[in-house]
Amino acid sequence: MLEQVSARVWVTTSPTWLTTSTVVVDDDGACLVVDPALTPADLVSLQRELTDRGWHVAAAFSTHPHWDHTLWSEALPDVPRWATPAAAAACTDEELAAQAARDLPGHRWDVVGGTTPLPPDTTELPWTGPRAVVVATPGHAPGHASLHLPGERVLLAGDMLSDVEVPLLDDGPGAVDAYRRSLQRLADVVAGCDAVVPGHGRVTDAAAASHRLAADHRYLDDLTAGAEPLDPRLGDQRVRAEHEAQAARLPV
């Protein structure tokens, strides 16, 4: 299940929407789990594999307040599950559970939501493992943040820099400009990384991530100009529907 992308970083990918979960492992086996997903069976399997490796979950981080990034399970221990203050406050647990029931029905979820807000202006996660820098990347969802592991030369991009999804925008005002600024911020981080992990899609390197950055800028340019984007990611029916919905929301 888990694939190693650096000395201390491992990733597993669910076949549903190519949703990734990332595990950062300290020398003593303590783990930081980022965006664990996607089904209850996935979460149970993740915990089983961590136990089999002799690792233990010490903390978690949710990159943003969409249900598939705020999941937990009774199979996993009760640990801090950090999110930015804006992300933690954006949706109630009931709203997130309703989203999950709508988007992926038929599952009995243990925990959806329940994240712990980081103190305001926190720039690094307060855990004892590899340094994890919180990078504010708004535009996709309130409080969206990526996680940079400089010692590992790894970027966990949340729902950005995907090879399977176009930029999906927050419903709030100014989302396009915020997303563009986030892409510019990520470009500086990507240049110093060996591995980039999107929330949905395939792990890649800095060179390919730079191509994704350019594709995302082109998509936003076409979207705001009212032009039809020539983007292969729109071949997926779900992504096409999301694109058409957000194109309809933009002011004429």
Rank of each mutant, 00 (worst) to 15 (best):
V25F: 03
V134E: 06
A187N: 14
P119Q: 09
P142N: 04
A245C: 10
L149S: 05
P15Q: 03
A60Y: 00
S73P: 05
L183N: 09
L183D: 08
V25Y: 02
A215E: 14
D27M: 09
A225H: 07
R153N: 09
A100I: 00
V133G: 05
A157G: 10
P85I: 13
S21G: 10
V252M: 03
R240H: 14
E152W: 03
L147R: 01
A141C: 09
Q99N: 04
G54M: 05
V135D: 05
L234M: 02
H64V: 02
L155P: 06
V189G: 07
D159N: 12
A241F: 04
D110E: 05
Q184F: 00
W10E: 13
L169G: 06
P173V: 00
L96H: 01
P119N: 08
L223H: 08
L32A: 11
P15W: 03
L186E: 07
A195V: 11
L234T: 02
D103Q: 04
A86T: 11
A175Y: 02
S45R: 15
P40G: 10
D93I: 05
S62E: 09
G106M: 04
L250T: 00
R108C: 10
T92Y: 05
P77W: 04
Q237H: 14
A157T: 13
L50P: 09
D177S: 15
L223R: 07
T204F: 10
W127D: 06
C91R: 15
T115D: 06
E49M: 07
H107G: 09
L147C: 01
P142E: 02
G106V: 03
A7Y: 13
T70L: 05
L156F: 01
A227F: 13
A145T: 06
V11F: 12
V44E: 15
A30C: 00
G235L: 12
D216R: 06
R48P: 00
D26R: 10
R81D: 02
Q184V: 10
P40R: 11
R180A: 03
T123Y: 06
L156H: 07
P120L: 09
R153M: 07
T128M: 01
M160S: 14
G172C: 12
A97C: 07
V34D: 05
C91F: 09
R153F: 02
D194A: 14
L213E: 05
A227C: 15
G158P: 02
W82S: 03
R212T: 14
L161E: 06
W72H: 03
S162I: 13
D205R: 11
L147T: 03
A7K: 15
L169H: 01
A178R: 15
H64I: 10
R181Q: 13
G139H: 09
D221N: 11
E152D: 14
D68G: 05
R202K: 08
D52H: 12
L147V: 08
L46S: 01
V23S: 12
L156I: 15
A101R: 12
R81H: 10
P80S: 10
H56E: 11
E49Q: 13
G158I: 08
E95N: 00
S162L: 07
